[in-house]
Simulated assay, not measured.
Amino acid sequence: MSRQLVSLVTPVHGPAVSLLPEAYASLVQQKLPEGWDWEWLIQEDGEGVGAAAHLPGDDPRISIDFSRRGGPQVARTMALARSCVTGESEFIKVLDADDRLAPGALARDIDVLTSNPKVGWTTSRALDLLPDGSTVGFEGDPENGVLPAGSVWQYWQANKRAQVHPATLCARRDLILALGGWMALPASGDTGLLLGLDTLADGWFHDEVGLLYRKHPDQITQHPFHAKGSEWEARMRIIEQHIRALRTVIPEGGACLRG
C-alpha cells in the first residue's frame, strides 16, 4: 500500500529561520494514522536564508528551495508547486517557521478530511505563544464541528476579521489550486485564501489546540501598516472584491463538495 501524504508549507525569511528547529520538533512528534506520512516544503523567500543549517540533513521528508523575494504569500504558493510531485499528496497544511504544532494536530486534520467528503478544509484553536513561554487563548471560538460554507465570510463582513485562525489551515490541495494559492498581498493573503475556501466548501473547526502562534517583534502582524491605514484598507477591499466575485460564479455561497 502506497503512503498518503499531508504536505506542510513553510515560508521563511530573516530571523524566523532560527526558530525552524522548534517547528521541526513539533512536527516529528506528530502521530499520524496508519499509511500516512508528511513532507515539509520549506520555501526560502529570497536567496541566502540558510534554512538547511538549522535542520537535520538526513530527514528525506524535508525539502528546501528558494525563490525570489516576494513575501510569505508568494513563498507559500511556490512551496505548493512542489507538493504532489509523486502524485501522493492530498492535503496541504500551513506551518509558519516561527510557530509550533500542538500534539495530535495533523491526525485530527487527516481524520476529518478523510471521513467527511463534504468538508474541504479545517482550522483549529490557536494559542498565542509569548516571549516568556506562556500562552494566551481567546474567547469566541466556534463550536467543534462543521463550519457551513459562507459562515466565515458572514463573520468577516461584520468584523473585518475571521473568527478562525488562517495559520491553522489544512485544506484539500485541489481547492487551494482552484483559488490560485495564497493571495499575493503584503499581509492577509492567508485570510483571503481562508475566505475563498469558505466560499467553495464547508469547513471544520477543532476546539482542541492545534497551534502555538508565536508572538515576537519581527512578525508581519507587528508592522504598523498591518491593522490600519491605506494599505490595510486596500487589502480588505481586494479581499472583499475577490470573495464577492467568487460568489457570483458560485451562487449558492459554496458547498461545491457534495460527497
Rank of each mutant, 00 (worst) to 15 (best):
N159W: 11
G259M: 02
S89F: 06
G150E: 01
H242E: 03
A158P: 01
W38P: 02
K160T: 14
L175E: 09
E252S: 14
H13N: 05
P103H: 01
H13W: 14
V12T: 09
E233C: 05
E143N: 09
P21G: 13
R69Q: 06
P103C: 02
G137H: 04
A167N: 08
D132C: 11
I238E: 10
I238V: 14
L130S: 03
K93P: 09
S2G: 05
P251E: 15
H242Y: 12
H13Y: 13
A23D: 11
V249G: 02
L95Q: 12
P33Y: 04
T199Q: 01
Q29T: 10
Y24E: 07
M1S: 07
T191R: 03
N159S: 02
L257K: 00
V209S: 12
A171R: 03
C170Y: 02
S67D: 07
R100M: 13
K215D: 14
A187G: 10
G120V: 14
R214H: 14
L185K: 05
L212R: 08
T114N: 13
L200D: 08
D190K: 09
E139K: 01
Q157F: 00
S83M: 06
G254T: 11
T191L: 05
F66G: 01
G229T: 11
A79D: 08
G259S: 10
R235L: 11
P142D: 11
G46Q: 06
S124N: 05
L185F: 06
D99N: 13
Q73H: 04
H242D: 03
P142R: 02
A81C: 13
H165I: 10
T248M: 10
E231K: 04
P217K: 14
E47G: 12
L200R: 13
I176G: 00
D141Y: 15
L95V: 04
W204S: 07
R61H: 14
Q73G: 01
Y213E: 12
E252R: 14
E240D: 12
H242M: 07
T135W: 04
S151Y: 04
P148N: 08
R172Y: 04
A149T: 01
P72W: 12
L246P: 02
R244F: 06
L127Y: 03
S151P: 01
R3C: 00
S83V: 08
I62R: 02
W153C: 00
I92C: 09
F225I: 06
M1P: 03
V152W: 00
R247T: 08
D111Q: 13
Q163N: 15
E143C: 03
A75Q: 09
P72A: 15
L20T: 04
D207E: 15
L200Y: 09
E143F: 06
D202P: 03
G133N: 08
A227C: 09
L197W: 11
C170W: 05
G180T: 05
L193W: 01
G57W: 09
T86R: 06
A16L: 06
A167T: 05
N144P: 04
P15Q: 13
Q163A: 07
D141H: 10
F138D: 11
N144S: 13
E22W: 12
D65N: 05
D65C: 02
P21Q: 06
W40R: 08
P60H: 15
K228E: 15
S124Q: 03
S115Y: 03
D174Q: 09
S26H: 01
V12W: 07
D109H: 09
I92Y: 08
Q30H: 10
L169A: 11
A107G: 06
G48F: 14
G196H: 00
E34F: 07
T248N: 15
G14F: 02
D218G: 05
